[in-house]
């Protein structure tokens, strides 16, 4: 149990590190959100469950907390991305397609 917990926590920390590295390296808000949320979901999940595995009496608590993170993380990601889009943060130069105009027009028509 202890070893499993250690492995889980270590892998989780690596993912958290990669997530923060992604926030640093990616070119614009949207790609940073991709790196920031994807890696923190699994990173936080594995870290918290790992702690639960090392201290068995914390395991139920750890599971409940990680399920909450799994549910709320995409919501916050969505809120940040939508806010950036509304404020008009531009896409980076590498971007190949932007269908927002079409989407907004359709919304106005209705």
């Amino acid at each position: 149990m202890n070893v499993a917990g250690l492995i889980s926590t270590t892998v989780g920390t690596i993912f958290l590190f990669l997530g923060s590295l992604g926030v640093f390296r990616m070119p614009d808000v949207y790609n940073r959100l991709q790196a920031g949320t994807k890696c923190t979901t699994l990173g936080a999940f594995l870290t918290i469950v790992g702690v639960g595995l090392m201290h068995n009496d914390w395991l139920p608590k750890a599971l409940v907390i990680s399920v909450f993170i799994l549910i709320t993380n995409p919501v916050s990601n969505h809120a940040l991305g939508r806010a950036a889009r509304k404020v008009g943060v531009p896409l980076c130069k590498k971007s190949v397609v932007d269908k927002t105009e079409e989407f907004e027009q359709r919304k106005v028509r209705q």
Binding site: L21, Y30, N31, C39, K94, S95, V96, V97, D98
Partner: peptide, 12 residues
């Protein structure tokens, strides 16, 4: 993230 050239082709 780890790839030196960051292989992305983003879009909406």
């Amino acid at each position: 993230v780890l790839h030196p050239r960051i292989p992305i082709r983003p879009g909406i």
